[in-house]
């Protein structure tokens, strides 16, 4: 287990999540948005692992949850990049400010 107080990793998670969020909200490059999303997922994983390390009854559940998040993240990256590739091929750019498929 650990000797680090729970507040430390939680704060780290919050900060990393915030950075990822800011990037996802402001960046126009689709790949960079994808990276930011990955960053947010990692921040969540830090939280899960921190809880698993501190709360004895959650020791297995927290880490396994983190593991599943990783699995999903891997799948998500693969699919997201595939979609970005299609976008790049069709529009010859990956600027999501110029993609209006959801517009009325």
């Amino acid at each position: 287990m650990t000797t680090i107080p729970l507040t430390y990793p939680l704060t780290l998670g919050a900060i990393l999540f915030g950075l990822g969020l800011y990037g996802a909200l402001t960046q126009r490059n689709a790949i960079r948005i994808l990276m930011c999303v990955e960053l947010m997922l990692n921040a969540v994983n830090i939280n899960l692992v921190a809880f698993a390390a501190t709360l004895r009854e959650a020791a297995a559940a927290g880490q396994i949850f983190a593991l599943f998040v990783m699995t999903v993240a891997a799948a998500e990256v693969a699919l997201a990049l595939a979609i970005i590739l299609i976008l790049a091929r069709r529009e010859s750019h990956i600027d999501i400010e110029r993609v209006h498929l959801l517009r009325w």
């Binding site: 287990m1 650990t2 729970l6 390390a53 501190t54 004895r56 020791a59 297995a60 880490q63």
Partner: peptide
């Protein structure tokens, strides 16, 4: 009021 970090070592690999 978070619980204090428990310290000690657990075989988390076996647990998972």
């Amino acid at each position: 009021p978070w619980p204090a970090p428990p310290g000690g070592v657990i075989d988390t690999v076996r647990l998972i």
